[in-house]
Write a protein that binds this DNA or RNA. Structure first.
Lengths: 181, 181
DNA sequence: GGTTTCATGTAACATGTTACATGATTCT
DNA sequence: AGAATCATGTAACATGTTACATGAAACC
């Protein structure tokens, strides 16, 4: 009875912000949700069909000249979304390839380990730069979001920045510790 | 030819630290690798068989009274592991249920949102406490790891702590911002 | 006229989790 | 004697990714 997977809620949530096509949903994940959520077409289209069958979303038929199919959330879909929002998020299993490699690298040459740390640091510096750019575009007021939702978007950006800053600092600390070995 | 999945390397890496059974590998993931890597039996046993077939690990036969099967890494397995360690880790797709909910919660009552943040903060405080406990047990010198590997374990613990501290700070900041709405 | 972006969808494949079945050993 | 932990393994299921096929519309 209950929805099986998280993807269904992700799609329901995206459609609650505004109606759109499967393609729009993918776009939304890639542009506003990177680092938070990802979906691929192989998942989106079957899920849209399931959600429609369950009456949680519906198609908008509008002088359908092209092959586009726009969906919007239904009242029942909104209810289902609100219920999910109330459930505490379950801690998800983590799999960090970097830390796994790092832990197993203790017998590798020091230079190799320092190189791994440098790359990891550069990766986070690049991410931090893109977060800052996103923040700047919010500052410039070119996004079409409401003031309230902007507070939430900024908060999510801040969390990404805090994470990156922490990892950059960690790389510094750790490089120093490894260098001293 | 090349190994398909990350689990194979995780298992290879764990066995490179020391020989063990499938059960030991699961234990290792649950105790020293939580927050970094997880495996389940349904994956471990078939993978051990594949790794054996590929000659990357081998069984240790020792007066096998019980049903235990202990594995150790082979020279070829060590080579394969070293090669993987040299490849840069690929950025993994992220899916954070909490942030997804948080972003979709902007239309929910303020109290509900503050509650979500409070729970998220408590969760990170609890994790921080376990990391500190793990650090204390390293300080006490009761772990049987080498001095060098201990440096790496401490570094991984530090990264977990930095992450938790960052998220706790973020919850404070964000609760204040939401409260002011 | 050609390239990029928009748009939908399926099939095959890869990966990961849960539940179950079984039994030995160790601890209380 | 009973409970907890150790130990191996399979089958069914759930989830997620990639490659492919197709074509319209927008841009240059």
């Amino acid at each position: 009875m209950a929805l099986k997977n998280k993807s269904m809620y992700a799609i329901l949530g995206i459609l609650h912000i505004g109606p759109g096509t499967g393609y729009d949903i993918k776009k939304y994940c890639d542009t506003v949700l990177p680092g938070i959520w990802n979906e691929n077409f192989g998942h989106i289209y079957p899920t849209l069909r399931m959600l429609t069958e369950q009456g949680l979303i519906e198609t908008i038929d509008e002088e359908n000249t092209t092959g586009k199919i726009r969906y919007r959330i239904t009242a029942r879909g909104q209810e289902e979304l609100d219920g999910w929002l109330t459930d505490p998020p379950q801690p998800q299993p983590v799999r960090s390839e970097f830390f796994l490699k790092f832990l197993f690298a203790s017998d590798q040459p020091k230079e190799k380990i320092l190189g791994m740390l440098r790359e990891y640091q550069e990766y986070h510096e690049a991410r931090l730069a893109t977060y800052r750019a996103m923040e700047a575009s919010l500052d410039a007021g070119i996004s079409g979001v409401t003031a309230k939702r902007e507070v939430f978007l900024r908060a999510v950006l801040r969390s990404g920045m805090i994470g990156c800053e922490g990892m950059i600092r960690w790389c510094d600390e750790t490089s120093a510790a490894i260098g001293a070995l």
